[in-house]
């Protein structure tokens, strides 16, 4: 991987931050106009980000990017891209949270050193589905987490009687809850697909379905957390703060699956290839 994409990534992260600021709606602009500009700036950032990823792919001469830095770039791109497609009509304060997270992902990618690619596999198509489902799942969980943050911030503002300003730009508690649930359901389906293809791949490559490696264990824990959340919310009909906090727990599990497991030395998902 080369450093050609650095300027693009810096610009994209800058645009995401600017978008977050605009969507916050206090400075440098106010009102609906700020929101419209915020979305436009985010779209520009997303375009530059896509260009940077294309440069990475060209430099790697490989379609599937698996190491930490590249996947951070992919997830960091999928967050604003999904937002612009599916959530652009949501109350604009949510974009402040989502674009901040996207910028954090890009800065994270810039901070970690580029790694050579991991091992090659004999069944590239399963591998492509596995990695794609994982990246999309992380993005869906991240956006669901943004809804969680929106819920908690809105709740805190209402409880503290900060009733005008950012509170009015954030989704209502019920809307944040409903959006979070939909995104979590989407992530849950993708995650299930990711685990299934991962197991299949493991069986095809090493002849073992499941071997309790750190990554496998944590991804199963994540799956369980989201399963519990969905179960409580749909079948149990529970709502409110505690249910929303389970969603946050799920995101923490997903984050640990992503980072910790890699550094714990997972044989199939090495971040440090030797």
């Amino acid at each position: 991987m080369s450093a050609d994409e650095h300027p693009f990534l810096l610009a994209a992260a800058g645009l995401y931050l600017l978008s977050a600021l605009l969507c916050h709606g206090r400075w440098p602009m106010r009102g609906d106009r700020a929101g419209r500009w915020g979305m436009a700036v985010a779209a520009a950032g997303c375009g530059l980000h896509a260009a940077a990823i294309a440069l990475c792919i060209v430099a790697a001469r490989h379609w599937v990017l698996t190491e930490l830095r590249a996947t951070l770039l992919l997830v960091g791109w999928a967050i604003p891209a999904t937002y612009l497609i599916a959530l652009r009509r949501a109350p604009i304060g949510l974009a402040t949270i989502a674009m901040t997270l996207a910028a954090a992902a890009v800065f994270g990618a810039l901070a970690v050193p580029a790694q050579p690619l991991g091992q090659t596999v004999d069944h590239p198509w399963f591998f492509v589905v596995h990695v794609t489902a994982a990246v999309a799942g992380y993005a869906a969980f991240s956006l669901a987490f943004c809804c969680t943050v929106a819920y908690l911030v809105q709740e805190a503002l209402l409880k503290r009687k900060r009733l005008v300003g950012f509170s009015q730009r954030l989704p209502s508690l019920e809307a944040a809850d409903a959006m979070g649930a939909r995104l979590a359901a989407l992530g849950f389906v993708l995650w299930t697909l990711m685990i299934a293809t991962g197991a299949l791949l493991a069986w095809l490559e090493v002849g073992e379905w499941w071997s309790w490696t750190p990554k496998q264990t944590w991804s199963l824990l994540t799956w369980t957390a989201y399963a519990a959340y969905t179960h409580l919310r749909t079948i149990g009909d529970y709502r409110g703060r505690r249910t929303v906090l389970i969603l946050a727990v799920g995101f923490v599990c997903a984050g640990l699956t992503y980072l910790l497991a890699g550094y714990l030395g997972d044989p199939y998902h090495p971040f440090h290839s030797s």
């Binding site: 209402l158 009733l163 209502s172 508690l173 809307a175």
Partner: peptide, 10 residues
């Protein structure tokens, strides 16, 4: 009404 909306949405 606005306050009710910030909690309950629609």
């Amino acid at each position: 009404v606005d306050l009710a909306r910030s909690v309950l949405g629609d």
